[in-house]
Design a protein around this nucleic acid. Structure first.
Ligand SMILES: [Mn+2]
Ligand SMILES: [Mn+2]
Ligand SMILES: [Mn+2]
Ligand SMILES: [Mn+2]
Lengths: 223, 223
DNA sequence: ATATTATTTTAGACAAATCTAAAAATAAAA
DNA sequence: TTTTATTTTTAGATTTGTCTAAAATAATAT
């Protein structure tokens, strides 16, 4: 059904993700950074993706993903996240262990396989990191979440996801028992460095701004 | 842990399988045929595999797989067959549908993943086609099976596997309800073309020699 | 507005895997 | 044992994805 190389798929996914943080078009160097490669290599690939009409690309003007490219990207992301659910829920991996494996599994081509996997997992709506799973047509329900760093003293919040997916960060959170579903309340916010003291089941932890920024939450009790 | 490309893995697997049908060393053209490529390409790859000490290769003398190469091949086969079990047992695919998907899944690198998958599947010893699944160390119990074509009139046999894995052949067997675990008895063997009449639960089917040759069985009741 | 700096693109090379066509070696036949 | 046929290897190209270094363009500072 699709005829894109694993590399093309990885580039498209990166471009899709960058499109969601960037207001204007995505520039070459940001793609290079996120793919751990050189700008020269990125330029080469951009030409190829443009040729296939997966992106709109103008020399020196950066790149915008097309509807067609977005659909491909969303399908990879769908596979990635469903496999992550499989790895945690069925094979009992920790949420900080699954990303690298899903990075490979997402390229397994069969759409029928992923359809059955989705049904077997009982149509999960979110992956272990709180990220929404696109359906077959590419639709995804984006839950309006906020950063814990913008929370208020005394308020209670439920963790819905993370803004940073590195294993280092996830392991750090795991040490405090912090992950999606857990409820925290802000005990105190330090004026000086915006770090905060949070309470989780009677235990208190000190979180730096760097950390609280990357914890996504919604108000406790909100839908 | 290992640093072999997907292509190298596929070549090694092919060489391993050919080694089990060939008494002497495996020759270039048979590898080319089984890989659907040219002899020239095979020669190139043989040099690379020899360089890595996965095979012993002498110009014009064919190739013998080394212990090291065998271990790599068996690990790929292990993954292939465990994924096939997953696809049939868990995701309810038919046994004639799973091969192509497993062909991709077998290259997913994590050994820990396959270890957990194996445990989740409750340590299956055979794949859906009756082929034995190597354990972590590469050991596999080869069940001494015979071809149905060498069976005797009146005798009862239990299907243990197939000698041909093409989807076409498997679909053909599926039409008669023939697959591993099913018991058949030979009602009659035609002198002329060695075709046979077999009985399966009161139904009778006519099997050509081409077909009966590729059905592997053991005597009914044998261990 | 011009100079300086940063970003992006091209040019040229390389490794991996493949191919076709030609040369070399081996096997089979006469 | 020659000759012929088959198999295997080499030579030379091609495609994909990558790299470094240099050239071109755009952004920023003076
Ligand atoms: Mn990937
Ligand atoms: Mn995730
Ligand atoms: Mn394969
Ligand atoms: Mn099989």
């Amino acid at each position: 059904m699709q005829q894109h190389t694993e590399t093309e798929e990885n580039y498209l996914k990166a471009i899709y993700h960058l499109s969601n943080v960037t207001i204007s078009s995505v520039n070459t160097s940001s793609i290079a950074t996120s793919m751990s490669t050189t700008s020269a290599s990125v330029t080469d690939m951009l030409k190829k993706l443009a040729e296939k009409e997966l992106i709109n690309y103008e020399k020196y003007k950066g790149v915008k993903i097309t509807r067609k490219g977005e659909k491909v990207a969303l399908n990879i992301i769908r596979k990635h996240r469903l496999w992550e659910v499989f790895l945690t829920k069925v094979l009992k991996f920790e949420w900080d262990e699954v990303h690298t494996m899903a990075e490979e599994l997402e390229h397994v081509s069969s759409d029928e396989l992923i359809k059955r996997l989705e049904a077997y997992l009982d149509f999960p709506k979110f992956d272990p990191h709180g990220d929404p799973i696109p359906d077959q047509s590419g639709k995804l329900e984006l839950n309006d979440q906020m950063s814990l760093s913008s929370g208020e003293t005394g308020a209670k919040y439920t963790i819905t996801g993370v803004g940073e997916h590195s294993s280092a960060f996830l392991k750090h959170l795991a040490k405090y028992g912090l992950k999606p579903g857990i409820t925290v309340s802000i005990a105190e916010i330090m004026e000086f460095d915006k770090s905060m003291l949070v309470k989780v089941n009677k235990e208190k932890f000190h979180l730096s701004l760097e950390v609280s920024k990357n914890i996504l939450v919604k108000k406790y009790g909100a839908i």
